[in-house]
Design a protein around this nucleic acid. Sequence first.
DNA 1: ATCCAGCATCGAACCGGTTCGATGGCGAAG
DNA 2: CTTCGCCATCGAACCGGTTCGATGCTGGAT
Lengths: 337, 337
Amino acid sequence: MNIGEIARRAGVSRSTVSYALSGKRPVSAATVQRINDVIAELGYRPNASARALAEGRTRTLALVVPPASRRLTDVQLGFVGSVVDAAAAHDLDVLLSPSGGDHDRSFERIVTGRRVDGVILMEILLEDPRVDRLSRASVPFVTIGHVEHPGASWWVDVDYSGLITRCVHHLADLGHEEVVLINRSAELVAAGYGPALRSATGFLSAAEQRGLTARTVCCADEAAAGLACFEQIRTQWPAVTAAVTINEAALPGVQRALHKAGLEVPRDFSLTGVIAERLAEDFHPPLTAADVPAVELGRLAVDLLLAQIADPEATPRNALLEPPISLRSSTGARPRG
Amino acid sequence: MNIGEIARRAGVSRSTVSYALSGKRPVSAATVQRINDVIAELGYRPNASARALAEGRTRTLALVVPPASRRLTDVQLGFVGSVVDAAAAHDLDVLLSPSGGDHDRSFERIVTGRRVDGVILMEILLEDPRVDRLSRASVPFVTIGHVEHPGASWWVDVDYSGLITRCVHHLADLGHEEVVLINRSAELVAAGYGPALRSATGFLSAAEQRGLTARTVCCADEAAAGLACFEQIRTQWPAVTAAVTINEAALPGVQRALHKAGLEVPRDFSLTGVIAERLAEDFHPPLTAADVPAVELGRLAVDLLLAQIADPEATPRNALLEPPISLRSSTGARPRG
DNA sequence: ATCCAGCATCGAACCGGTTCGATGGCGAAG
DNA sequence: CTTCGCCATCGAACCGGTTCGATGCTGGAT
């Protein structure tokens, strides 16, 4: 069941078997044939640990995800799936490491245990200790999202600020004068979660530029909070005629609140934002929104990571995607009060 | 950066360092202290591959998931999260392996490459070739879900048939006479997906037992399909007054269809089934439904797997959970036609 | 003073691959 | 017929840990 056994049965040395499998040195066709026969017969496959030890690489990537207690959003789920798929396309395995708490033994194991060839970090904060940790440990890594001062690091991200800006311009073009941003939870904002903060600044500056009255609220990532949040908006700022959101989990609640208030979208109220495509299309009516290209981001992250692993000294690369806003049917002209 | 370097700096042999770390043989307190100081100073951590090779175990579990193309349901997502968390609690890492296609190189790597100590398989079919593959390879594994003839294998599952039966009885008790099962997609049923088939048989036999008229439909796992499906039900079987479902993805569509048809739940129509708790509560009104205990199942699967790894010869264990039906507010007495 | 037990430590073998330098055999060239 | 070179293969070292048997040293009992 190991390479020595294969060698013995094929009547060759262990190194010959190794070369026959890797093709790194020529081996005669007859010998290769014999070795392959034995391997097929015994169903042999090299021991991954031994190979990793000898080669100095594990053919494994780590994907650091938020702990399960924090439910994944649709967008995050898209990242995980696409990273796994992209890695599989390169015959790489993916190790999942829950991180975000304080103990983070799993993260430490991965960083220092040479358990993986590289790391993909998602859900990062503007100031993220894990980024520093990986830099110091000189482990190749790519972040999905970027810290405030990325310096010389590799990352891919969606331009939340830019997208939100475009949403605001879109609403301004339609004549809206008072708009609200329904952000992610207050905890995430307080923690320094990039998309939430960049969305807020983008929203405010775009609104100012267009002379709109801008309101922002944080909303916990759940339907019930979405409902409560929307009702509060109606009470507190009755002149608001449009909302921009990046909070996917709140959408069902917002939908219900709209219904309860007897508001029809987009006739009475416009809704847009940055939302996973599937959710945007499940909404009623389908949301005019920027679809987060989760699949592309995941694939891109793997590509960058592999480039970095191949040449750790290469100058860092990054990608800031700004997907187009898909015009569906949730935005319309400001209702005449 | 390796154990030899630590040994040299601490002035001891490599084996002493190893014993100091593992505690498998006594080492004097003074020596342990010295070794720990050196380790702390250099930030040493044993190479995972080398350790795996020497110990013959990788301290890693594999979780076989459906390929990303098939979107994960909320329940499946719950499995992934809880398995990862439960594994982390035991200081184990989790390797994600997408499987379900035909080539499945990732799956083969894991099965034969001794890359992991055990495998957790989810989304299994009544006849699942992967189960046989793992059995033959004598890799410890636990399935979430069970094949038709589990024989001597380890598994955990939810008793879909039993739960659906209870839903039917619940509706019968409320006086409903014609009920429909909104199942998962026709492809899944055709592929032999356990929960879908067991739900159908449980539904039909319970309905027969109570003398109800039973209808069943398959519905693709998406909101649009849920809407279309529900409208078709209304047209085709106008006497249906209650639905039972296990299709989470269809729910938003069903909700919209109810609204479009001007039906109020539960006054005009009752809805129940087996649904992730979060989705049941996000529905309007909250669904009376059996919450799939995804977290408990995941934890249980890890526990069983560890027991099996510890003693591969142990007699297989399994668990068939039947969570209580949470009475919320989506079921009521049959409307008087 | 001698012997023995037991503790602390060491050295070597082993896990299962990869890789490098060396070697044997063969055909072609001189 | 010798020599050169190349192709195919071999043997040994190495990756970085773990583990087992052996050994030196110390102290207490006799």
